[in-house]
């Protein structure tokens, strides 16, 4: 958990653009965070603000965090399901302990920036009905990142 303390310190003192975290909102044991991400400038999401929920296991950073968008404002995006689950490979298969909350937020921001068409994934209705509550339990096959 020492690492989470350092990450929190870095994130409050020197946050990446558009990312804000309120330490008041985070419990003492640091195992669950809420992070705000602003819709990137000159993207389809400009002006919107989204909230991400991070959950960390005891094994973090060797185990990836569980990351979902929080209701009510879940971005309409081809890789984001209406229940907030995100199809992003660094959150499961491609996770590395050298990644951090900040780098996850940056990846998500760049995912939003590159979106050209605001729509839900084609399998949204089915996925949301059948998926596990924990997105890490999903066997994702990763969509083309360039979409």
């Amino acid at each position: 958990m020492r690492r989470l303390q350092k990450e929190l310190l870095n994130l409050t003192t020197d946050p990446p653009p558009g990312v804000t975290v309120d330490p008041e909102e985070i419990g003492d044991n640091l195992s669950e965070w809420t992070v705000s991400v602003a819709g990137p400038a000159s993207s389809l999401y400009e002006g919107e603000t989204f909230r991400l929920n991070f959950r960390f296991s005891q094994k973090y950073p060797f185990d990836s965090p569980e990351v979902v968008f929080m209701r009510p404002n879940i971005p309409v995006h081809p890789h984001i399901y209406s229940n907030g689950h995100i199809c992003l490979s660094i959150l499961t298969d491609d996770w590395s302990p050298a990644l951090s909350v900040a780098s996850v937020c940056l990846s998500i921001t760049s995912m939003l920036s590159s979106c050209k068409d605001k729509k839900r994934p084609p399998d949204d209705a089915f996925y949301v009905k059948t998926c596990n509550k924990n997105p890490k339990k999903t066997r994702w096959w990763y969509h083309d990142d360039t979409v």
Binding site: K59, F62, D63, I90, D94, S96, P97, S103
Partner: peptide, 26 residues
């Protein structure tokens, strides 16, 4: 960190021959 990384890979993920570098994207 290396030790914990390798331990997690071996014990939790059951990977032996194909553990990759701990750096992202490597």
């Amino acid at each position: 960190c290396w030790c914990e990384y390798l331990t997690t890979k071996v014990m939790d993920d059951g990977v032996g021959q194909t553990i990759s570098c701990a750096a992202h994207g490597c």
